[in-house]
Amino acid sequence: MKMLDYVVMANSRLRENLARAVELTDPLVKAFTASASATVRIVASGSSRHSADCARDYMQDILGMQVAVVTPEAFIDREHVFPRDAFTMVISQSGFSTNSIAALDFIRGGGCGEGVQSVAITGNPSAPIRDHADVVVDYGVGVESVDFVTMGVQTLVEFLMLFALYASHATGRISGERVDRELRCFESAFDAHAAALRACEEWMDEEKLTLSRRVPACVVGNGPNYGVAEEGALKLNECIKIAAMHSEGEEFVHGPQMQLTPDSLLFMLDDPRGSERLANLHAQFRTVTKGAFFITAHPRGIEGELAIPAPTNPLMCAIPNLVAFQYLAAQKTEELERWEMHPYVRALRDTIGTKADGYEDSIHALEERAKDQYGQ
């Protein structure tokens, strides 16, 4: 199985997980309701944190409460103090991330107060993370054997949103009718995701040479699309091996835009409900570089647009919009043969120590499971 296979397969997994949403979210909903907390804190790093940032606005809207997203380091150092008495969940998709394990140990050691449960969300409940958490929740990604997660990102965004939906209902904040409406919105998000797959395939063909530039890139987005920008920049960095930064819209035009040249790559994500400001900025930057692209659900017929449909609930826009960067990373890394990192960096992998012992063996085991399950 290749990375692009998982990019495409995510649509089926999203729909499968929606069909068993109650079962998937029930352990986390029960832990949340038992906590009687009025805020939520998500502790995560890398793609897991980006997924949380993609889901955060929807979660806050549906729960009617603050949802904070912090890294494990910041959590242990200072961000465990505020918000006070938050329901805290720690995410590690692999279940091997040493910084997430450290955050769980901090909670177990009384860092958030005596008697507070350590709650872990993972795609691999048999991983070492299980020994550091009181509650371990499998968010339902299934088998994804490529280290650069794609299907895992979308399914985690979906899971966090579904958790918020059912937790809000369980605590009496929303009605059953609202739940039913939101579930239909998820269906529209998956339809948009399928449309995005088709649009990105055409986009990659049309812009093949421009998108193959080995130059620094900027990825810009607001709200849920800020999480998309974070994940997009990461995929450009770790897969295609080009330097990439992420930014909010106005932060970008307060300095980072000064680096643009006619050779640059720039990806701007329109706001969920559309932004004339961002559209105008894109049109101006397009006069600097033909490598400027505008990802939007509100096409205006300007050059460089990639039209991806909007879900019924605009706060779910990250689910289809992530496809652009996942598709780009998967296809270009393969075409340009960029999978291998520099030997000096590769030599450091074991000494850097971001994963618990057994991680490489777990990847090999996933590859064998993928062959059995998917026949490839």
Rank of each mutant, 00 (worst) to 15 (best):
S175G: 08
S362Y: 09
L4T: 12
R108P: 05
F285M: 09
T88Q: 02
P309F: 01
R181Y: 13
T351S: 11
A192C: 06
F285I: 03
F75P: 03
L63H: 09
L209K: 15
L315P: 08
P320T: 04
V40H: 04
G291R: 09
G249F: 02
C239N: 14
S126Q: 15
T296E: 01
G95E: 05
E207D: 11
N313R: 13
A38D: 13
N124F: 08
L162M: 13
A195N: 07
V220M: 12
A370I: 06
A370Q: 08
L4E: 14
N313M: 10
G249R: 04
F294L: 09
D53W: 08
C112A: 11
P224C: 06
L14F: 04
P224D: 01
E158C: 12
D77T: 14
Q259W: 15
A243H: 12
A167G: 10
L260G: 11
V219D: 08
T150K: 01
Q331E: 12
V8T: 03
A19L: 15
V179F: 13
H254R: 04
A10S: 02
I319D: 00
F106S: 05
I319V: 15
D85R: 04
F87M: 05
L322M: 03
I242W: 11
E250P: 02
L269Q: 02
M268G: 02
Q376M: 15
G110I: 13
T25M: 07
F96N: 09
P343L: 15
L4F: 13
Q93S: 08
G113K: 08
F87Y: 03
Y139V: 14
G304D: 01
P125L: 10
P83T: 11
N11E: 02
S37G: 07
V8H: 00
A68K: 02
E79A: 14
P128Y: 07
D134F: 08
A103H: 14
S97Y: 09
V70I: 11
N321T: 05
K371C: 05
L209A: 14
V137P: 01
F252E: 04
F32H: 04
K355M: 07
V22N: 10
L197H: 01
I240G: 01
A283V: 10
R346G: 00
